[in-house]
Amino acid sequence: MTATTTAVSRLSTPYWQRTRWQTWLLIAILIGGGVLMLYPFAWLVLSAFKLPADIIRIPPTLWPETWSIEAFQVVLSHKIGGGSLARSYLNSIFVTVTTVIAVLITSTLGGYCFARLRFPLREPLFYFVLSTTMVPFLTLLIPLYVVMDRLELLNTLWVLIVPSVFSSFGIFLCRQFVYGIPIELYDAAKIDGAGDFTIYTRIIVGMMKPVISVLAIFSFRATFNDYLWPLVTITDGGNYTLPLALRGIGNSFGWFDYSKVMASSLLTLIPPLIVFFIFQRNLVKGIALTGIKG
């Protein structure tokens, strides 16, 4: 496939001018599908505002009879094994922000180094980094736990950050992207006397904005949503991230108290939703730009 960098969508009208009703039919079907997609989500949002009497109704009703924020008040003061939902919120945000920033720096720098700079073993090292993506995380899970135990990082927030500081996928993505930046730009800056690092900060990073937002979303999602690794390494409730805290809340409130579980789920969704609505457009464009085409 050609490495064009056109926008995702056709700018000109399609060659087969569709009739108006065909387009509307298509939109209607797609909206119907969208409603199906949103149906479970609607239960989440609306049930968070229900009173216990509403939750246990049989047959269940989607719309709350009386709107109440009781569930939010209960979960916010609920203790989860030495921590709380608010504490987990801070933990999650700290871990996610630190990891995303680290991944963005190492990936853009790595992409630049592997694509433009000379150093010994450049190609073997790159293909080694790429090949690590073939090993499933579950194969590394047990020994990585042992390594973290030896480094005495278990049960701290750092254990969630340190193993993710470099991203093989991120380095690969950025290297492909830097190859697309005209080499003349690099050479011109070089002739003007700019050092490698100045070229990186002044020219390369600025041109990588599309790939940076894609990487930011991927990295945010992977870190914020991660469950297995925190489950294994974090036992102290004070260091729980949100997925672990949610599991704890799911265990302590049963089917009859499910508004509490839905309320805490809804609170958890706020940061991803904000990130998602800021970056959604960039994500779609970025995927076309970064050439994830196999």
Binding site: L38, P40, F41, L44, R221, N225, Y227, P243, P272, L273
Partner: peptide
């Protein structure tokens, strides 16, 4: 796409609880 993409951003634990 934004609508169809909404579940992707949810933590897996939230989807499972729901």
């Amino acid at each position: 796409l934004a609508i169809y993409n909404l579940p992707v951003i949810m933590p897996g634990v939230v989807s499972v609880l729901l």
